[in-house]
Computed example of a mutant assay.
Amino acid sequence: MKSVELTPPSATLLVLEPLRAAADYVAGLAPLAAPLPHGDGHPVLVFPGLGVSGVATSDLRKRLQQLGYEVHDWEQGVNFGPGADNDLMLERLGDHLRQIHALHRRSVSLLGWSFGGVYARQLAAKYPELVRQVITLATPVADNSDATHAGWMLNMLSSGIPPINHAPTRCSDATAPVPSASVYSKTDGIVAWEGCVSTGSTNHRNIEVEDVSHLGMVHHPEVLRVLADLLAQHPDGHRQVVMRAAGQ
């Protein structure tokens, strides 16, 4: 994907991000307005966002398990983002992916939140024969490391650990011969939504969810509905299309 000039979300969205994330979390606790499609039991591998571990995705994984999927954490602790050891991390994640595939004897859906989606996309490009589909939540795919507040956020969360090295994220727009979808929100306070929209593949969807925070992506009920719909679909490929979650 060609480099585009993007800027980080506004200071207002950034400042409001924690409050809105809390609201998204509370919204996720409310009963669903309509039942979600039940899954077919295939395995789903979930990658956490920048600066957090699988603990942050535990609620989402539990909900997906309740829908009938075999859900797995990435099992690599805190996600400090792609850095100098990116190749080693991909090797570890590839071993984990192969283990899950062998255990269930079925292709695996990869679900990545924020910079966790970078790993999901890279794995799908490297091991397409093991992957059913890739779904990313608020994941930057454009080649523009200045379009997020991620470095500042990671430095704050990690109490002074040097900020993320963004250079390897240029691999995040790697394409693979598997269906993929990018879920994004125009009210994301961490990552510029324009950078989450990919046009590099005819086997891809861009799906907008309205009024969702970056940190609340893994809790918001509309995001869960989108995920349930995507995971329940037969892996027969998708056309490139920009969609809105509301009113589909």
Rank of each mutant, 00 (worst) to 15 (best):
N203K: 03
R170H: 13
N165I: 08
D59N: 10
A142F: 02
L16H: 08
T139N: 10
D143K: 07
S58R: 06
S159E: 15
V183A: 06
V134N: 04
P48M: 07
P235V: 05
L36R: 12
S58Y: 06
V52Q: 04
H96E: 10
A150K: 01
P235F: 03
S172E: 02
S180K: 00
F47S: 00
V209N: 03
L123W: 06
Y184T: 05
A147G: 06
V4K: 07
A84N: 09
L45S: 00
K126S: 14
D85S: 08
F47Q: 03
V212P: 07
S109W: 14
A84G: 12
D24L: 03
G112I: 05
D85G: 09
T57W: 07
M153E: 04
L230K: 01
L36S: 10
M156H: 04
A192F: 05
T187A: 10
W152E: 15
V134D: 06
P140G: 06
R244M: 10
Q66C: 11
D236H: 13
R244Q: 14
E210C: 12
T199W: 08
I207M: 09
R61I: 04
R170P: 00
A192S: 14
S172W: 02
P8I: 01
A21C: 07
G116H: 11
R225H: 14
L45Q: 01
H166L: 11
I161W: 12
L14G: 06
T139I: 03
H234R: 14
A246H: 10
C196E: 15
H166E: 13
I190L: 13
T139F: 03
I135N: 00
V55M: 10
G49K: 04
